[in-house]
Amino acid sequence: MVESAPPGPGHLLRLRREGSSEALAAALTTRGEQLTARTRAMLSGAGRLDDYLGCGGE
């Protein structure tokens, strides 16, 4: 799966300065969802690696 690069901090600052509060809220919601998905994928991968290595939480 190929993801596009998330907007940088400048994008959110520009939205805050020039855009509507609804656009800023939508951008923040989208970014939060992206971060949550990435975090869940990393945790899932870490669990699989733990299983593969047979660490068993030790």
Rank of each mutant, 00 (worst) to 15 (best):
M1E: 13
V2E: 10
E3G: 05
E3H: 11
E3R: 07
S4G: 14
S4W: 12
S4N: 09
A5L: 13
A5E: 15
A5Y: 11
P6M: 12
P6N: 01
P6K: 02
P7Y: 05
G8Q: 09
G8T: 00
P9Q: 08
P9I: 06
P9V: 09
P9H: 02
P9Y: 00
G10A: 09
G10R: 04
H11K: 04
H11M: 05
L12D: 09
L13C: 03
L13F: 11
R14C: 12
L15Y: 09
L15F: 10
R16Y: 10
R16S: 13
R17H: 13
E18G: 02
E18A: 06
E18C: 12
G19M: 01
G19F: 00
G19D: 01
S20K: 01
S20A: 06
S21L: 07
S21A: 07
S21T: 00
S21Q: 07
E22C: 08
E22P: 11
E22D: 14
A23N: 01
A23I: 02
L24A: 02
L24E: 01
A25M: 02
A25P: 02
A26K: 09
A26W: 04
A26M: 13
A27K: 02
A27M: 01
A27T: 02
A27I: 03
L28A: 03
T29E: 15
T29R: 10
T29Y: 08
T29W: 02
T29I: 00
T30M: 10
R31G: 12
E33K: 14
Q34P: 03
Q34F: 09
Q34M: 08
Q34T: 01
L35M: 10
T36N: 11
T36Q: 11
T36S: 13
A37N: 12
R38I: 06
R38D: 14
T39M: 12
T39V: 08
R40W: 05
A41L: 12
A41I: 01
A41Q: 12
A41F: 07
G45Y: 13
A46D: 14
G47A: 11
G47S: 09
G47E: 15
G47Q: 10
R48S: 07
L49H: 14
L49R: 14
L49P: 11
L49V: 03
D50R: 02
D50N: 14
D51P: 01
D51H: 10
D51L: 10
L53C: 06
G54D: 07
G56R: 04
G56E: 15
G56F: 03
G57T: 07
G57L: 11
E58T: 06
